[in-house]
Amino acid sequence: MVLFGSIVNIVLIIVGTLIGRFLSNIPERMKETVMYGIGLAVVAIGIQMTFESNQILIVIISIVLGAVVGEWIDLDGKINRLGKWLEVKLPSKKEGPGIAQGFVTATLIFVVGSMAILGAIDSGLRNEHDVLIMKGILDGFTSIILSSTLGIGVLFSAVPVFIYQATITLLSTQISRFVPDVLLDSFIAEMTAVGGLMIVGIGLNLIGITKIRVANLIPGIAVVAVIVTIVHFLF
């Protein structure tokens, strides 16, 4: 089954979230320190991913143009409004972060990264699901921590994660017919770097240093695809 990897991924996110809710009564100081720890780890992962780039200029242009497009369509606002809608429909009786914050933060962490795209492509092209299963295990452990600090909103991130990865998987079943291997490898490298910068932004937000609207940078991934394609065929 071509979507097996994505299904395993979201199941592990849901299980991790439910486990994390049982750990929600840990002291606030511990939660705060844990969140800082997660933030630092996320920053480190993002920096490591950024060094995958072979053309840093492509990364810079993609981030800038992606930010322009993201701000124009207000992607961050739309995602937050969806989170707020969930918060209204499922009000939390506990104090602390609302459903919207958990939903948005978890969605960005689980979606913005190379493993989501690489794993989905691998599932579509070769019907191999090891990458997505590995990602699911990591997401499951992350969701335990996130849900213990940010609440049940983390669970709802499973929906956009599945839609995102399933779409890429289904499209990639046809990608080998149109995209040369060299072009695909170049796109993956630059996309990983752009995604890495976004993950750095997520980590800094978790720590509380910044309030970057990371969702508005996501169109940068589409910009990467366009630029890499142009460079491939022109040079």
Results as ranks from 00 to 15, higher is better:
residue 1 M to G: 11
residue 3 L to I: 09
residue 5 G to D: 07
residue 8 V to M: 15
residue 9 N to K: 06
residue 10 I to D: 00
residue 13 I to E: 05
residue 14 I to A: 08
residue 14 I to R: 00
residue 18 L to Q: 08
residue 21 R to S: 02
residue 28 E to H: 10
residue 31 K to W: 04
residue 32 E to F: 02
residue 36 Y to P: 00
residue 38 I to Q: 04
residue 40 L to F: 15
residue 43 V to K: 13
residue 43 V to P: 12
residue 51 F to N: 03
residue 55 Q to S: 12
residue 56 I to W: 08
residue 56 I to E: 01
residue 58 I to R: 03
residue 62 S to P: 08
residue 64 V to G: 03
residue 65 L to V: 12
residue 65 L to T: 07
residue 69 V to D: 03
residue 70 G to D: 04
residue 71 E to S: 06
residue 75 L to P: 12
residue 78 K to G: 05
residue 78 K to N: 08
residue 79 I to Y: 13
residue 81 R to M: 13
residue 82 L to V: 08
residue 83 G to A: 09
residue 84 K to S: 10
residue 86 L to W: 06
residue 88 V to W: 07
residue 90 L to I: 08
residue 91 P to L: 13
residue 91 P to N: 10
residue 92 S to K: 10
residue 96 G to S: 02
residue 102 G to S: 03
residue 104 V to C: 03
residue 104 V to G: 07
residue 104 V to I: 10
residue 108 L to D: 13
residue 108 L to R: 09
residue 109 I to V: 15
residue 111 V to G: 03
residue 114 S to W: 00
residue 117 I to R: 04
residue 117 I to M: 05
residue 121 I to M: 05
residue 122 D to N: 06
residue 124 G to P: 04
residue 125 L to G: 06
residue 130 D to K: 11
residue 131 V to E: 04
residue 131 V to Y: 08
residue 133 I to T: 08
residue 134 M to L: 14
residue 134 M to V: 14
residue 135 K to N: 12
residue 142 T to S: 06
residue 144 I to R: 13
residue 145 I to R: 00
residue 148 S to F: 03
residue 149 T to C: 14
residue 154 V to L: 01
residue 154 V to D: 08
residue 156 F to D: 11
residue 159 V to C: 03
residue 161 V to S: 07
residue 163 I to C: 01
residue 167 T to D: 02
residue 167 T to W: 04
residue 167 T to V: 14
residue 168 I to P: 01
residue 169 T to Q: 05
residue 171 L to P: 06
residue 177 R to H: 14
residue 180 P to V: 09
residue 180 P to A: 15
residue 186 S to E: 10
residue 187 F to Q: 14
residue 190 E to T: 10
residue 191 M to Y: 11
residue 191 M to E: 01
residue 198 M to I: 10
residue 200 V to M: 01
residue 200 V to N: 02
residue 200 V to D: 00
residue 203 G to L: 09
residue 204 L to M: 13
residue 204 L to F: 10
residue 205 N to R: 01
residue 215 A to E: 03
residue 216 N to Y: 05
residue 220 G to K: 09
residue 220 G to Y: 06
residue 224 V to H: 08
residue 225 A to W: 06
residue 225 A to E: 06
residue 226 V to N: 07
residue 228 V to F: 03
residue 229 T to E: 15
residue 232 H to L: 10
residue 233 F to E: 07
